[in-house]
Every structure is written in C-alpha cells, then in structure tokens.
C-alpha cells in the first residue's frame, strides 16, 4: 500500500526537485553578454546579489513587506476566524463562501479594484474631495501602504480558513471553564484560545509568509515603477535582462530567506507557548 505514494512522489521529484537542481546549477554559471551563459562553478552571482546596494534594498523591502503583511494578516485574521468558527447554521456557510470566493477571482482583478479605489480619481479621493476634507487628491497609490493593503487582501482568506478550522476544534467548555474561574476575556484568549490554536497560527503564518515573499501582481501594479520586490526582480532577469545565472541566484536567495524564516519563525512561535 505504501507504493501509492510513488506516483505523486515521482511527479514532485520530476517537476520540482529536478528543476530546482538545474536552476541551482545555472546559478553557478557565468553570464556573458555575447553567449548568454558560460559553464562555470562560481558563487559570484550570489556575492553580487548581496553586495549590490540595489538588490540589497530589494531584498530588505521584500522581507519588511512580507513580515509586516504576515503580522497584519494574523492580527485581522484571528478575530475573524474566531467569529467564523463560533458561528452557526446557514450564515456560517454564507460567511465562509464570502471569505473564500475572492480567492477564485485572482489577485490581478483585486489589484485592479485597488487601482479604482486608491487612484487620484479613485473612489476614496473623490469622496474626500467631494466632502471638502482635502483640496488635492492624496497620494494613496504607488507606495508601500498600497502594496501591503493589496497583499493582505489577497492572503487574508488563507489565514482565516486555516485558523477557523483549528479554532472549531477548541471546545467551548474550555473557554467557559476559564471564564467561570474568573479569567478576564483577554486572559482566556492568551492562556486558553491562543495556545490551543497555535498549530493553526503557525500553519497559517507560514503559508501566508511564503505567499507574501512571492508577491508579484500587487508589487508591480500597486507599487509603481520605483517599488521593487524580489519576485518581479527575478522575472526581470529572465525576461528582460536574459541574465539567467544572476536571476537563478536571486531566486535561490529568495528561497533561502523564505525557508530559513519560516523554520525559525515556527520554532520561535512554538517555543513561546510550550510551557
């Protein structure tokens, strides 16, 4: 029966592991403007990526935006997931669909929605001008805030669905018992709900952090030309720059930071509450 793992395992080996090994090999090659790629074994591409101030800035921006967005998503997602998990009947079904269906709409469409909402002639600025709050439109678009709003809107459903599945498994009696014994709502949350929901918090945060590190559409469409994150930078190297070795090195730096931070992050979160 263990053989049933094989088909899926072989597919992932062939379609993920083998391509990743090839990409790693390419990252050790040299770029030549005339021949595009020259066989070599050098770490020069990695050194260039971390030494070049431009790419260092891109990496720092990506890490800051991804971390901030993940924390914000957790802060908004937890109460919503709790609310959803404790709901009953038909409305719960409806609320779940409302949370889930923007996922199918895709992040490009939602970026278009943000453009219409935040632009100079957008709904928010039109409302503020119409009410006489502002004399000139606020620059709401093409900055870090707009990108973070776009990202959080995209990843929130994943966080909410992951968390609410875990919170549903927490018996209400546990909360009621703590509260009957005199715990304040905040204490009940901190000492009962949060520790029991921790596996969900870790799973949701890891999933969301990976998605944030991967941000493409929100960064390109809402951040404007000056705003650079790793995912568009990697693609630029392959599509516009044709510098495959450097692009491959950037991709591995992105992957390395994502893996290390998710592993360290889950370990720290896990330790905080294992008491």
């Amino acid at each position: 029966m263990a053989a049933l793992v094989l088909p899926a395992g072989v597919l992932v080996l062939l379609l993920l592991v083998a391509p990743m090994l090839l990409l790693f090999r390419i990252s050790l090659n040299e770029f030549s403007p005339t021949q595009m790629m020259v066989e070599a074994t050098t770490a020069a591409n990695y050194f260039r990526a971390v030494q070049d101030p431009y790419y260092r800035q891109v990496l720092v921006t990506t890490l800051a935006v991804a971390t901030g967005s993940t924390l914000l998503t957790l802060g908004l997602g937890f109460p919503t997931a709790y609310w959803l998990a404790r709901m009953q009947g038909r409305w719960k079904s409806f609320a779940t669909i409302v949370v889930m269906f923007p996922l199918l709409v895709g992040n490009v469409v939602r970026a278009a929605g943000w453009l219409a909402l935040l632009g100079n002639g957008g709904a928010i600025n039109a409302a503020l001008l119409g009410l006489g709050v502002n004399a000139a439109p606020l620059p709401l678009l093409y900055n870090t805030g707009a990108v973070v709003a776009g990202i959080v809107a995209v990843v929130l459903p994943y966080m909410i669905l992951t968390l609410s599945a875990v919170i549903e498994g927490i018996p209400r009696q546990a909360e009621e018992a703590a509260s009957n014994l005199g715990a304040s709502p905040l204490t009940v949350f901190r000492r009962v709900v949060l520790p029991l929901a921790l596996p969900g918090v870790i799973a949701g945060s890891v999933l969301v952090f990976v998605l944030c590190m991967n941000t493409y559409a929100s960064a390109v469409l809402l951040g404007g030309p000056q705003f650079k994150m790793m995912a568009p930078a990697v693609y630029d190297q392959f599509v516009r720059g044709n510098n495959w070795p450097f692009g491959a090195a950037l991709a591995f730096i992105l992957l390395g930071f994502t893996l290390v931070l998710t592993v360290v992050g889950s370990a720290v979160l896990g330790r905080c509450y294992r008491r």
């Binding site: 993920l16 990743m20 990409l23 995912a231 392959f238 491959a248």
Partner: peptide, 20 residues
C-alpha cells in the same frame, strides 16, 4: 517532499520549471 511545492515561492518554482 509532497508538501514541498507549498514552501517554495511560485516565482522560484516557475523559473526553475522554465529552465527545465
């Protein structure tokens, strides 16, 4: 291994597949 694709940013997996 099977959950691996979830941990790899899509951009990285996409470029690797493209090269492959």
């Amino acid at each position: 291994l099977l959950l691996g694709p979830l941990a790899v940013p899509g951009v990285v997996a996409g470029t690797a597949l493209y090269m492959f």
